[in-house]
Amino acid sequence: MNYMDTLEKELISMGEGLIASLPSLAIGVVILFATWVVGKIAVRITGRISARANLRESLQALIQTVTRVGVWVIGLMIAATVVLPGLDPSGLVAGLGLGTVAIGFAFQDIFENFLAGVLIMLRESMEIGDLIEVEGVMGKVEHISLRETHLRQLTNELTIMPNSMLFKNPVKILTDAHVRRDELMVGVSYDTDLDHALEVIRGALDGIEAIDTERPMSVFAWNYGASSVDFLVQWWSDARPRDRRETKSEVVRNIKKALDNAGIEIPFPYITHTFKEPVPLAQPAKEAAE
């Protein structure tokens, strides 16, 4: 057997087959290009329709992504049937089913994050722009994709979290409501008239405009501390972090000023040293010399 002749015949046959399939390949490339154009137009149209329907931003992103994936799946199936004439749509769908199962086992984490991303986008409770806390990470939701969520922390670091982490773990949404309750412990000395101190603290809150007056402000004599009687002060203010910090700063300043004006001491811990035996006191050097 002449191996070189056999190899030459095979190469010639492959070349002729490639040349014969060039028109189909060209048509397939045209179909892929058309798929890209149609996908762009379809995503733009669905984006405009979802925006006019006043859907949530995350839901708009989900609709656009599903539209893009659907257009590409159809385009790839059409291109495959053109390039490979012996491949019928039913066989292609069956092959895709088996391939999806195999890929699913190989890339389980990726598909888990994908499905979690879809479910997160369908949620109504969490939106882009919300301040959330999950697994000790607190930040503002900047972007939600089908695989990951971007959180901008209050210190301006960007944290990219897998969607499965947000789906499996409890998520604390800090800006779900426009107001939040804050609290502060204030201590006064034990010889203070507690009723008078309570009125002074409550009066210090009345002049703060940032406090939501439609909700109750509470001042309770709460605890016996090591060197003070502690009052628990509670109020409601804007849920945004910066507004909460500014409001709390004003609360602290006003309460301190009100207690000072009323002559009420905010005590600090007193330390008393006890010795079991008499402690000799050293005399000054001048007296010792005399």
Rank of each mutant, 00 (worst) to 15 (best):
I132K: 02
S50A: 13
G17Y: 09
I110S: 11
L131A: 07
Q64N: 12
F107Q: 15
V29P: 02
L7S: 11
R123Q: 14
L59P: 00
L62I: 11
F114N: 08
V30F: 12
I19T: 11
M4I: 12
A116F: 06
V93G: 06
A51Y: 06
L22M: 13
R44G: 15
L11T: 10
L25E: 03
W36P: 00
G47W: 01
V101Q: 03
G86F: 02
G15C: 08
Q108L: 14
T46N: 08
I128P: 00
A102G: 09
N54E: 10
G15V: 09
V30W: 10
L87E: 09
R56S: 14
E135G: 15
I12Q: 15
I19H: 09
A51G: 05
F114G: 07
A94Q: 10
S125W: 04
V30L: 15
I132P: 01
P85M: 06
L84E: 10
W72L: 12
V66A: 11
S13E: 14
G129L: 06
T46G: 03
G86V: 01
R48N: 12
R44C: 06
S13D: 13
M4W: 11
G47P: 01
V73K: 03
E124P: 01
G28K: 01
L18F: 14
L122F: 12
W36I: 05
A79S: 13
M77C: 11
E112M: 05
I78W: 06
I103W: 02
V93E: 04
S90L: 14
G91S: 15
L119T: 07
D88E: 12
I41N: 03
A116E: 07
I19Q: 08
L119G: 02
S21A: 10
V38C: 12
V73M: 13
A34R: 02
V43L: 03
D130C: 04
A116G: 07
G86H: 08
G47E: 05
I128A: 02
M4K: 13
L115Y: 15
L122M: 14
I78L: 15
A20Y: 06
S90V: 14
A94D: 08
P23F: 05
I132A: 02
V30M: 13
R123H: 09
T100Y: 07
V93Q: 04
R44T: 11
V137L: 07
L11C: 05
G99T: 07
G136P: 07
E57C: 03
Q64S: 15
G129S: 04
L18G: 13
S13R: 12
V37P: 02
L11K: 11
A20P: 00
Q108R: 15
